[in-house]
Design a binder for these strands. Sequence first.
DNA 1: AACAGCCTCAACCGCATCGAG
DNA 2: ACTCGATGCGGTTGAGGCTGT
Length: 207
Amino acid sequence: MAGWGVSEQGGRKGPWSPEEDKLLAQYVSLHGEGRWSCVARSSGLNRSGKSCRLRWVNYLRPGLKRGHITPQEEGIIIELHALWGNKWSTIARYLPGRTDNEIKNYWRTHFKKRGKPCEKQEKKKNLGQKQQNQEEENGSSNSMQEDLMTDENIFDPTDKKQETVIPYPTFDNQFLPMMFQDITPCTSDCIAVEDYLWEGSLWNLDI
DNA sequence: AACAGCCTCAACCGCATCGAG
DNA sequence: ACTCGATGCGGTTGAGGCTGT
């Protein structure tokens, strides 16, 4: 990000102003989501379609949750990441109100670099830098996450044979109580995933 | 109080995929 | 079958806030 300003296409870049947010929200409420390039052109925003979509999806869309990821959500993220790997948008579908960007950032912050979730704060308080470095070197502290991320364990969504349609929960029903929404699998594949989620402890809230 | 290092998160980029013509 | 624009996704970056010294 070498300096905000104007993109190659001439559109504005950088942080969105409240005025831009308002324009975008107004336009989407009138015309609906989609056709982002049209949104960019017609709304008066000097932004790329991509930028408009991203802003709407990650920030302006109604129903987005604010605040910290809960332990329950964290558990879901761990389980689904073990299933699908870095398929953040897929994982986000199971966390109503959370965006793929948010989940991606969370994973990166809490799991990728360091050890187990929540260990960060403990480390800060209890461990000296030396010990921290030692743990990072021998990799023992995050063996759980690394195990989950091994190729053998990752469900490959790009494999058409394995790919599973995930019909729920979507943004439309995000206002239902999280994780106990009225889920209705529509295909046998869905049921298979459902079985995994229920039997495989994803929905076990004893985390 | 000042500084340095770390962390978070909004936003960008590049690539892949999809669909219309 | 091919091209091209639109859209979606995952990876990456950097500004600003936070925390420890």
